Simulated assay, not measured.
Amino acid sequence: MLGLQYFSFSDVWSPVLLSFMLLITAGYFLLVGPLSERNPQNEPTAIGRKIMFVTGMFFLHLAQGGPVNLLGHTMFSFHMLSMALSYIVAPPLIMLGIPPWIWRSIVNYLERTPMRNLKFMVHPVVSAVLFNGLFSIYHLPVVHDYVMLNFGVHRLYYLILFITAVFMWWTFVSPVPERATPQGLKKLGFIYLNMVLLTPACGLIIFASEPLYATYSDPNAWARAMGYCVPGGDPTALLSQFGGPEFFGFLETRVDQQVGGILMKFIQEVIFASMLAYVFFQWYRQENKEDEEDDLIADVPSPELNQV
């Protein structure tokens, strides 16, 4: 059980956050169901979209308020799994689960507010640098430990990371089909850019010769961070009961750190490589289709020639 048996249901599943997630999900089903009739641009929402939205919300809660979140405070490998689920897996599922007519309403509303001045942030290069830059900075040891030991900063930083992840995924998901986003080779280039930008942070973690983060190697720092994760957690009591993070880890601290870096990079590579293959196939098929149409046009006899 990786130590989960030592904690209560409330510790493992965060009922307050779970209730908030369920409330959002219920609101989603109302919006795409009975309330959709109030919007003249509404379209029937396919079951596939509903499944993607629910799956995305499940993964997000699992990473931020479920067992993966708790285990992410005891082992660095689970911390990186939490990051991957939160910013690489959940956002595109949630975004794809929201039908285009809702996205149109959101975008049209934002364009009538001062928020329209921030639309440059969804530019593929800007969003890629923003998300991957913030992710890399967060995993600098001094920054990571500071964020983990300051609850308010921790929540704010994670929220900003999620927002920038949505900006990054906007180019790839294209939630509003009629709004132009890069296609073909350009989209392939942006996917590759994101794959490259995350490499330095993962490389730092994978090839470090010693443990980098006090919250996974120093019992006192770990107890303070764990106290924020467990409702009403007392660092002194946690230290007395468990002694430190090594109580839970079945891997040596540096090995656990390396596994975490590899896991994050592996998940990113699998998802983005799948996207590369899909986009390349779509681009190749479109190019062939256009070539075939050009050949058909070239083969049509000219009217002038038929009259001769």
Rank of each mutant, 00 (worst) to 15 (best):
F281K: 14
G233C: 02
L238Y: 02
V255D: 03
G232N: 06
F248D: 12
D256N: 12
P231H: 02
Q258G: 13
G261S: 05
A223T: 00
T236A: 15
G227T: 00
I262R: 02
D256E: 08
I267V: 14
I271Q: 01
E269P: 03
M275V: 10
Y216N: 04
V255W: 00
D234S: 11
D295Y: 14
G249R: 15
F272K: 01
S240G: 10
T236M: 14
A214T: 09
Y228N: 01
D294C: 09
L276I: 10
Q286F: 12
L239G: 11
I297G: 14
F250P: 07
M264A: 08
M264W: 03
F248E: 11
G233R: 04
G232M: 09
Q258C: 12
C229M: 12
F281W: 15
R224I: 06
F248M: 10
F266D: 06
V270M: 06
A298W: 10
K289M: 12
I297D: 14
A277W: 11
M275L: 15
D234R: 03
I271R: 02
V279E: 03
D295W: 11
E252M: 12
S274G: 15
I267S: 00
N288G: 15
Q268Y: 06
M226F: 07
D295A: 15
G232D: 00
A237N: 05
T236K: 14
R285P: 04
I297W: 09
D294Q: 13
M275C: 14
V259Q: 06
Q286E: 15
Y284P: 04
P219Q: 05
K289V: 02
K289G: 12
E290C: 09
N288L: 15
P235L: 03
Q258F: 04
L296D: 11
D256I: 03
A277C: 13
P231L: 06
G244R: 05
R224W: 00
L263R: 05
M226C: 05
G243P: 05
M275P: 07
T215L: 02
